[in-house]
């Protein structure tokens, strides 16, 4: 077990290097540059720009820039935003908790509602309940999240007035509810379907028949014997999904004006602030890797047939 975890942690190093290099090179390849973006529509003094670039190290060759960035990173320096002169670490520290809150909220919504719906439908396969769930999830899967986001915003905020259309205060969970539902809806659909299929399949399993033959009450059969086996694939999905939710937050934050990581990345992209984008995306990559490691370990806890050496 310990060796397995160590190996998995070591595997994160090449993934980390690869993903930062990839994003870094993408930012480098994008047209436009951050210093020029400072000037907007003003007349430009080329010598001045070259001077600023040199002072920021942006005139160096690509690989050297990457090296500088990495060495800085290992000293805990995420770089500094060119336009605002704010350290990137501070920018992330401001934006990240907001996105984390939104993501966790969406994740909880996905888990609780998705699994509940899946269990309810899976226990009654091919009934009306089951078929309506399949139809609903199909709808959620096929409608893109930005369409769903604007539609929800229109109905629930502008028409019905139940919620605020924008998130002014990211500490306010009532305001975060709608964005969280929109963000979690796609995963919710997948989780519900996965749970439903898994439950419906295991319901016919021999060990469930044994549990019935043992004279166990139905609650125990479902809660102890059926659920544990059925949730194994769902847990696997949820782990990789947490990362996807953070990525999806970029779009949702845009719709509902949440000043989170998505907003920050969008801003930084439009100003070609490479170090900000790389910092944020790398953080998401690392969170994703840690989550998938945790899921794999949890997998062994849930299914004793799996042993890591």
């Amino acid at each position: 077990m310990g060796r397995y975890v160590a190996r998995r942690l070591l595997q994160m190093i090449p993934v980390f290097l690869g993903s930062t290099l990839l994003i870094f090179s993408m930012m480098y390849a994008l047209p436009g540059d951050p210093v020029r973006a400072l000037y907007g529509e003003q007349a430009i003094d080329q010598a001045q720009i070259a001077e600023i670039k040199r002072s920021l190290g942006l005139d160096k060759p690509f690989l050297l820039q990457y090296w500088d960035y990495l060495t800085g990173l290992f000293q805990g320096d995420f770089g500094t935003q060119i336009a605002s002169q704010q350290p990137v670490a501070d920018v992330i520290a401001d934006a990240f908790p907001i996105t984390a809150r939104l993501t966790i909220f969406a994740f909880l919504f996905t888990v609780v509602v998705g699994i509940t719906l899946g269990v309810v439908a899976g226990l009654r396969p091919d009934t009306l309940v089951d078929k309506s769930l399949l139809a609903l999830t199909l709808l959620l899967i096929s409608v893109p999240s930005f369409v769903l986001g604007y539609a929800f915003q229109y109905f629930f905020a502008f028409q019905l007035g139940w919620v605020d259309p924008n998130v002014n205060d990211p500490e306010n969970y009532g305001q975060l509810l709608l964005p969280a539902i929109v963000l979690g809806s796609l995963s919710l659909a997948y989780v519900a379907r996965l749970t439903r299929t898994s439950i419906a399949e295991n319901l016919r399993a021999d060990y469930v028949r044994t549990a019935v033959a043992k004279g166990l009450p139905r609650r125990r059969i479902v809660g102890v014997h059926l659920m544990r086996n059925s949730l194994i694939p769902v847990v696997t999905f949820l782990g990789s999904d947490l990362g996807a939710l953070m990525g999806g937050a970029v779009v949702t934050e845009g719709i509902f004006n949440v000043r989170g990581v998505g907003y920050t990345v969008y801003e930084a992209l439009s100003r070609r602030e490479g170090s900000t984008v790389v910092g944020v995306v790398t953080l998401i990559v690392i969170i994703y890797l840690v989550c998938s490691l945790l899921v794999d370990l949890l997998y062994a806890v849930l299914d004793p047939r799996i042993r890591y050496a």
């Binding site: 021999d206 044994t210 033959a213 166990l216 086996n229 194994i232 004793p304």
Partner: peptide, 19 residues
């Protein structure tokens, strides 16, 4: 079930809960 009438199934591997 289980207390007065009990049943033994054919395939014990699939009839016992794996987890």
């Amino acid at each position: 079930r289980g207390s007065k009438i009990a049943m033994i199934f054919q395939d014990a591997l699939s009839s016992l809960n794996p987890v």
